[in-house]
Nucleic acid binder design. Structure first.
Lengths: 229, 229
DNA sequence: TTAATAGTTCGATGTGCATCGAAGCATAAC
DNA sequence: GTTATGCTTCGATGCACATCGAACTATTAA
């Protein structure tokens, strides 16, 4: 008996719910009211939607005082949503008109790693510096790469042993090129926030780099500054 | 402007349409009437659904005489549907009751490669025979593996150069283990049909092995016959 | 030609469900 | 205590759309 995918698809199919899911792709847990604003609906309607999403195991919820914090239930969900984004952006007539938020284009969070123009640049830089070997959907760190990241404080051996792949490549829906996902991708994003080179935008998946932070980021990961911004 | 995934999701969300899509996961092109039977709806309704699926670029259609043959528009679509299957089977209460077609469980087509119990066994055998090195979501052929498949007639060098990854691992929704996808996975399935070890079931994704064919398959790919069937 | 099959278009029907107002409950602030 | 905020339940409304019968076009068979 094959599982019935129409149930899960139905959950994503509603515009309000899909807006909520997209907002949660930022990786941050959000409250019910925040999500209702994101989806441009009233709190009552949002409550109903969120109940269904939790029921369908797309979201998990954590109660904290009078707030309820929602987030994606796991990697699987994020991966599948990104897949849907890829398909949609491929089938769309090139998004045609619409200026498209340039900040999203430049750097955004893809669940727990960096995506967008800067994410792609990072990937390319690591490859051209011989730190990463491009192997299609998954890549491997070279000896040079291992040394570099070890010097930055990464426990490479631990990441290699872990179940989650270290250097998965993730297809970027805006750039249609690979960027770096996996546990190393997550580490880089965490590192970026920790060093205060950038911070999450409050109400979107965009990442706001400071001028200084962007410079440090480029230097650390050896990205040539041929970017206009 | 983020693409709106709710449109594509909405196409999959309808039970009749999702049944059609699942039927097309078998990789074979099917006519409109065949799909209407699969989905248990009238021809009129099916026509409307198929129009929407083609419009939404999930399917492509080829006219031949008075027939119309439909198939999935490409790898992307198949990959995303399989993703949805994984999520659904994970969230489901273990499918609980329901005997579940044992033939599907044992061996089935996953778009263009072999899945199910036998697919997983194949993957494990290749790994334990040191022909395939498991690297998470993608794997690589060892020297021994390259020799073995070359002796079977595979142009390994050509597959390695091709854009499509040769040895992608694909998560199996019924076994929840990896099986072999990618161009090598496709080659093995094609080879199996070519040698007449098995044939596609007429009206499902199941693969019917002959007793002799199964024996040859096991010998060729060095699978220990510890399978009950 | 006539008859059969494959697929489509149109119109009518019915239903599932998103939406919000109003009221209710819980927690936090004052 | 009282008031404010976050979230939920209930009920009413309205719309989108899946469904099928009937009639129509196109291709193949006889």
């Amino acid at each position: 008996m094959e599982p019935n995918i129409s149930l899960v698809a139905g959950l994503i199919a509603d515009p309000a719910r899909s807006k909520m899911l997209m907002a949660l792709m930022g990786g941050k847990a959000l409250t019910a009211t925040e999500l209702s604003i994101e989806a441009e609906i009233t709190a009552q309607t949002a409550s109903s939607h969120l109940g269904k999403l939790v029921d369908g195991e797309l979201l998990q919820v954590r109660k904290q005082g009078r707030h309820k914090y929602f987030q994606l239930k796991g990697q699987h969900i994020a991966v599948m949503l990104e897949q849907l984004l890829v398909i949609t952006s491929l089938s769309k007539p090139q998004t045609a008109t619409g200026p498209s938020d340039p900040r999203l284009q430049f750097a955004r969070v893809c669940y727990d790693h960096l995506a967008g123009e800067l994410g792609v640049k990072l990937y390319d830089a690591l490859v051209s510096e011989d730190m990463l070997q491009d192997m299609g959907e998954q890549s491997v760190l070279t000896e040079k790469g291992k040394k570099h990241f070890t010097s930055l404080g990464v426990d490479v051996a631990a990441l290699e042993k872990a179940k989650r792949p270290m250097c998965k490549s993730c297809l970027d829906w805006s750039e249609r090129r690979n960027h770096l996902a996996g546990s190393l991708g997550k580490w880089i994003l965490d590192f970026t926030f920790e060093k205060k080179w950038a911070e999450r935008d409050l109400d979107s998946r965009a990442i706001a780099f400071s001028a200084k932070g962007l410079k440090s980021f480029r230097e650390t990961f050896l990205i040539n500054p041929d970017v206009q911004n």
